[in-house]
């Protein structure tokens, strides 16, 4: 079972496994996806503070804030990636990626600002494109 402890696999093998997972998801439930789960999570958090407002938004009627199978898929990704990193001994505590550090320096605050802003922008675009 050494292959489970390898730090990485061939990207072609990884892609093939993802392709097969897409068949299984299609056959059993529905196509795989993660970004809808962010909408559902945001809705669930917002509901704590502004339940009436959430009920009034058409988007949350379309993507109901609840835990569905795709949400569980995202939870599974967290577990699976953790097991892989743990088995391969590559769990670490990194605040600034190496490549970012080489170009923009080691400031955690600066990296945080760009990671956060990037996250906001990318998800807004992803939902607009319905991806």
């Amino acid at each position: 079972m050494d292959w489970l402890k390898r730090e990485s696999w061939s990207p072609y093998i990884g892609g093939a496994i993802i392709g097969i997972l897409s068949w299984i998801a299609f056959l059993m439930v529905a196509p795989l996806g993660a970004s809808t789960s962010y909408v559902r999570t945001s809705g669930m958090i917002e509901k704590i503070f502004a339940s009436e407002h959430v009920k009034s938004l058409p988007y949350y009627l379309k993507e109901v804030p609840m835990i569905d199978w795709q949400w569980m898929f995202v939870a599974g990704v967290l577990i699976g990636a953790f097991i892989s990193a743990w088995l391969s001994g590559t769990l670490y505590k990194k605040f600034v990626p190496v490549m970012w550090n080489e170009r923009f320096g080691g400031s955690r605050g600066k990296r945080w600002v760009f990671a956060f802003a990037g996250g906001v922008i990318l998800m807004f675009g992803a939902r607009m494109a319905d991806g």
């Binding site: 390898r6 990485s8 696999w9 990207p11 093998i13 990884g14 892609g15 496994i17 993802i18 997972l21 299984i24 998801a25 059993m28 439930v29 795989l32 835990i67 569905d68 199978w69 795709q70 949400w71 569980m72 898929f73 995202v74 939870a75 599974g76 990704v77 967290l78 577990i79 699976g80 990636a81 953790f82 097991i83 892989s84 990193a85 391969s88």
Partner: peptide
Amino acid sequence: KLLMGLSLGVIFGFTIHKSRM
């Protein structure tokens, strides 16, 4: 369905980590 989603996610997460994604 929830368990199916979770299981697919675990394999997917394992795979994307091994693929350096």
